[in-house]
Simulated assay, not measured.
Amino acid sequence: MTVSELPPRPGPPALVLVAHGSRDPRALSTVRALMDRVRELRPELSVHLGHIELNEPLLPDTLAALGDTPAVLVPLLLGRGYHVKRDIPEMAAAAQAPTRIAGPLGPHPLLVDTLHARLLEAGWRQRPASAVVLAAAGSRDPESRLDTQRTARLLSARLGVPVLPGYASAASPTVADAVHALRARGRRHIAVASCFTAPGRFAAECAAQAPWLASAPLGAHDAMAGLILHRYERARETQPVTAAA
């Protein structure tokens, strides 16, 4: 067999961004902008989007459209929880093609890079007795809370001020309770760092409780796109393949 007769080498697996889904139309546009940024950074990759609920395309439909093309699923979720542990693996197991599932985006220094950048955009500067509440969605899963707490510690180390988690639902403390706890420590300038991928009800409700300033959701920041690609490559190297159904 000559070189020209050799079969073409297979390309890299498709990258499937797995978003939660939202009734807020800004969420879908934000996720699509993030997907476009990933494509700009890695034009040789086939990049797709699938939602767990509420928005189309749903993840099973995206996987069905890929047919027998291998894929790496990267959750646009910021910690471990039910969707990462149950929903996404179950959908992947039903796919025709072999798949790998990357870890959630947080905790990671690139996530902290984005949180820091969004705070700076909102007007953050360290002031006497300043502090931050890291506003997250919340989960009943203790590992999800551990992930948020670790992200808070990383952000605290970056900013040099206390950072407490505050949750929108399903976990405590709430954002309001975290603000109260920081005030009880004598912290007067308290910002809310929005640890949400995209705009939505939870992000808006948490931002409204900021005593000083609130940052925008993470969105299509370059560090987020870089983090997605890092999780993709890491999954290719380390995660077992889910066999085709």
Rank of each mutant, 00 (worst) to 15 (best):
E5S: 14
L6V: 06
P8D: 11
R9G: 07
R9V: 13
P10S: 02
P12T: 11
A14R: 01
A14D: 10
A14C: 12
A14W: 06
L17V: 06
V18G: 06
H20K: 05
H20C: 11
H20I: 10
G21F: 03
R23V: 05
R26K: 07
R26V: 04
S29V: 13
S29I: 09
T30H: 05
T30I: 10
D36Y: 11
R37Q: 14
V38Y: 10
R39S: 12
E40M: 12
R42A: 14
L45F: 08
S46T: 13
S46R: 10
S46C: 12
V47C: 07
L49E: 07
L49Y: 04
L49M: 00
I52T: 07
I52E: 01
E53N: 09
L54A: 08
P57V: 03
P57S: 10
L59S: 04
P60A: 00
D61I: 02
T62K: 00
L63Y: 01
A65V: 09
L66A: 04
D68Q: 12
D68L: 14
T69M: 13
T69K: 10
P70F: 02
P70Y: 04
A71W: 02
A71C: 07
A71P: 03
V72N: 05
V74S: 03
P75I: 08
L76T: 07
